[in-house]
Design a protein around this nucleic acid. Sequence first.
DNA 1: GGCTGCTGAGAACGTCCGTTCTCAAGGCTG
DNA 2: CAGCCTTGAGAACGGACGTTCTCAGCAGCC
Lengths: 195, 195
Amino acid sequence: MTTHDVREHVIGTADALFYGRGIQAVGMDVLKAESGVSLKRLYTLFPSKEAIVLAVLERRHALWSQGLETAIEAASSPRDRLLAVYDYLADWFCIDSFRGCGFINAFGELGAVSPSVADAVRSHKRSFQASLTRLVHDIGGSSELAAQLAILAEGAQTTAAISGTPEAAGQARRAAESLIALSDAGLREALAVTS
Amino acid sequence: MTTHDVREHVIGTADALFYGRGIQAVGMDVLKAESGVSLKRLYTLFPSKEAIVLAVLERRHALWSQGLETAIEAASSPRDRLLAVYDYLADWFCIDSFRGCGFINAFGELGAVSPSVADAVRSHKRSFQASLTRLVHDIGGSSELAAQLAILAEGAQTTAAISGTPEAAGQARRAAESLIALSDAGLREALAVTS
DNA sequence: GGCTGCTGAGAACGTCCGTTCTCAAGGCTG
DNA sequence: CAGCCTTGAGAACGGACGTTCTCAGCAGCC
């Protein structure tokens, strides 16, 4: 068991605990008990609890981005790659332990009190929007469309979390399909006269 | 200064504090200092801090719903009434103290630890979805469209909160206009063949 | 006016948090 | 094998939390 392995183990345990119960609801002694790593060692591995929180967010970002990328690459057409984002969300919402976006949760809990947490959340969301923008540009869509699709994805996450059902993913996906179809067909101007 | 007035004053003060700093970040002594109401009195007015949190959520729901209703009623056509929802969001996002949806924040912070808070958040969101569904039905739209527009509104709130800019409101509004136009024109079938 | 009962303020309480300290055990060096 | 030095565990610490207690002040009544 190398130091690095223990570190990763602690981060993984902390991730599950923080995500499942809320960050402030998990004390260092609980993390000690669940990870089997003594307090002394925890504090030699990390300078503070906040550092653990940041490491957890980093890991969560890496896993999430990697999973998303894998889902995207599995699709064949540019349009399917874009829609794969929502299928990825749908799969995620169905997991038992799903409790919303960990970044949004962390932001609500600590965003006003810890600037570094707020920054980590912001950069995660920026990264997601960048991925989406790239996919949208691949089908010739505008940045505006990318922003709209990102808003749908964000809304699906919070809606699924609060309602406790995964159906928001399908609704967001169908909404995205509509917006993409509109953009594809270049029908926005044509429809504008009817509204 | 009646008991009722003091109660309302405490709830208002607590709302501002909880929303601005996070619920767990505000202790009872801070609430005492900011409201000018002694701890003894606070605990005669409310049985616990959690009761104050619930009262705050109730008040926030009342104010928010009332503001939304006012914004809706000010619009003249059914379509404008529906889009007024997003203009209401836009105005809200521009307020300096905007820090996201207080209910989403509370859910992320306490949803896993306090079932009553989770319930309050769920019923607020259900109420919002019900309002939206009513407005959508008034223009002949489906429940599916209402769900999609709700997701857009949710996404706009978290996006605006995390990004720190109000532009998500406009993006969500334009996305909503697109979805409504598609629904209005009954063009979904026509477009399906092009996708 | 003196006694009584109630309300007020905030000191005090127990608990739990994040963090540090003590000290015992073990491995490497000579 | 003796000495030392690193590392381990978890008891201990200071502070902050939510909640309760004490007691001074002040009505109202005899």
